[in-house]
């Protein structure tokens, strides 16, 4: 009798859908709040949201973020505020993907996305630079640095709406 019951279980599972996926051809959908690699966001007009305040670096428990700031001018404008990140680097070998940087960011410039497939053959490659982290310029936007009209961006920290 036990033998029959055992085989019944086996045959039942033969007919069921497999629970494993054919990774990497197939990818399981992510939880919305999954914390993957960071993205530096842009406004719709292409300006960078990051104002180079380095609060992410200060909040980082793993000391993975390195920010160097510089001053915007109307001739060469990167972000709507007074200051922008001249250098923005994240050492992905150090990062523990806790998302504290996201919490610390006053302009919601840094967000942890869903990208998690990162592999390196060299330690130096693990340092993601600003060019690697920043989103592409959205349609209708312009690449930074932008030359803008004087007197438009006068606030040190921009309002969080899309400028213009």
């Amino acid at each position: 009798m036990n033998v029959i019951r055992g085989f019944a279980t086996t045959f039942k599972h033969l007919l069921e859908e497999p629970t494993t996926l054919n990774y990497p051809e197939q990818v399981r959908p992510f939880q919305e709040r999954f914390k993957g690699r960071h993205h530096l966001r842009r406004y719709d007009n292409g300006l960078e949201k990051c104002i180079g305040c380095a609060l992410c670096a200060a909040a980082c428990p793993a000391d993975a973020i390195w920010v160097e700031a510089a001053e915007n001018t109307d001739e060469e404008r990167y972000s709507p505020g007074e200051r922008y990140a001249k250098t923005y680097e994240i050492n992905m070998l150090r990062c523990i993907f806790c998302g504290y940087c996201e919490d610390a960011c006053p302009t919601q410039a840094i967000e942890l996305g869903h990208e998690h497939r990162m592999s390196f053959t060299d330690r130096r490659d693990a340092i993601y630079t600003k060019q690697m982290l920043i989103d592409p310029v959205p349609e209708g936007g312009r690449e930074t640095p932008q030359e803008v009209e004087p007197g438009v961006f006068t606030r040190p920290i921009p309002d969080m709406e899309n400028p213009l």
């Binding site: 104002i51 180079g52 305040c53 609060l55 700031a69 505020g81 007074e82 200051r83 006053p106 040190p156 920290i157």
Partner: peptide
């Protein structure tokens, strides 16, 4: 006083 603290 402005809320500039992050860039100040």
């Amino acid at each position: 006083h402005p809320l500039d603290c992050p860039v100040c």
